[in-house]
């Protein structure tokens, strides 16, 4: 599905990713863990074409992503839920979803599916996104990305700052997407969330994936968490 091979990327003269290699497979949740500044978010941004990739290859089902115009990348079926959600705050919930539907969605069918997944959004369709609660905003951020009918979904710390019931809902959604064959890349710092959801865990350190393990091989007390995440 998605492979990154020897990717170097960064911001101006600051190189963040240094020969990073990574793989995400259809119908699997791959969690990405690492300390702050390790390059997790930059990896997602490099996939989306939002930071300059100076060398290496990024492939989605064999098609090259590096060098593509950034707006072409979501058209290939990649949804991105960035850190901090980055909703279009002054736009309504319906308009935020409409933006997602424009590129790849199948119109009302996709919209209905998203609203079935997050019924709370249906009650808020005419409300400005900025006036939603934190949990509702995260639902909208994920719902908007799902409007792209993604085959690959990139989630950057989607449960950060949310109450437990909302975290459970988002985890449930991730499981359902995995069941539908979507490849999910989840940047997450909570060990219990990782062990609950992940099929594989990639540990990122100083701009490269230092280790990838099946989640089944990890326990809450696994030394890799202390080594690479510091928890």
């Amino acid at each position: 599905m998605l492979t990154l091979e020897g990717v170097d990327a960064g911001y101006g003269r600051v190189q963040v990713l240094r020969g990073l290699s990574f793989e995400a497979r259809a119908g699997e949740v791959t969690c990405v863990m690492g300390r702050n500044g390790a390059g997790k978010t930059t990896m997602l941004r490099a996939i989306m074409g939002q930071v300059a990739v100076t060398s290496g290859r990024i492939r989605l089902d064999g098609a090259a992503l590096e060098g593509l115009a950034p707006h072409r990348i979501p058209q290939l079926g990649i949804g991105h839920v960035p850190q901090g959600r980055r909703l279009f705050g002054p736009l309504t919930v319906a308009e935020n979803l409409e933006i997602g539907l424009m590129t790849r969605g199948r119109g009302s069918r996709t919209r209905e599916r998203v609203l079935e997944l997050f019924p709370r959004l249906r009650e808020r369709l005419d409300q400005a996104a900025s006036t939603l609660s934190g949990g509702e905003q995260q639902m909208l951020a994920i719902g908007r990305a799902l409007c792209l009918e993604p085959k690959l979904l990139l989630l950057d710390e989607p449960t950060e700052g949310l109450q437990p019931s909302m975290i459970a809902l988002i985890r449930d959604t991730v499981r359902r997407l995995r069941g539908m064959g979507v490849a999910v890349v989840l940047v997450e710092q909570r060990i219990e969330a990782v062990l609950d959801l992940a099929d594989r865990v990639a540990f990122v350190e100083t701009g490269r994936v230092a280790l990838t393990l099946p989640a089944a091989d990890l326990s809450p007390a696994a030394p890799q968490f202390a080594r690479y995440v510091g928890v």
Binding site: M48, G49, Q50, A69, P70, H71, R72, I73, P74, Q75, H80, P82, R86, F88, G89, P90, L91, E95, E98, I99, G100, M102, T103, R104, R144, L148
Partner: peptide, 24 residues
């Protein structure tokens, strides 16, 4: 209109608009 929606989304957040396939 959809054109207006695209313009408003681009006005609010250019990078996120791009991440949804909008040719900024």
């Amino acid at each position: 209109s959809r054109i207006g929606l695209v313009m408003r989304a681009t006005q609010i957040d250019r990078e996120t608009a791009t991440a949804f396939g909008i040719d900024v």
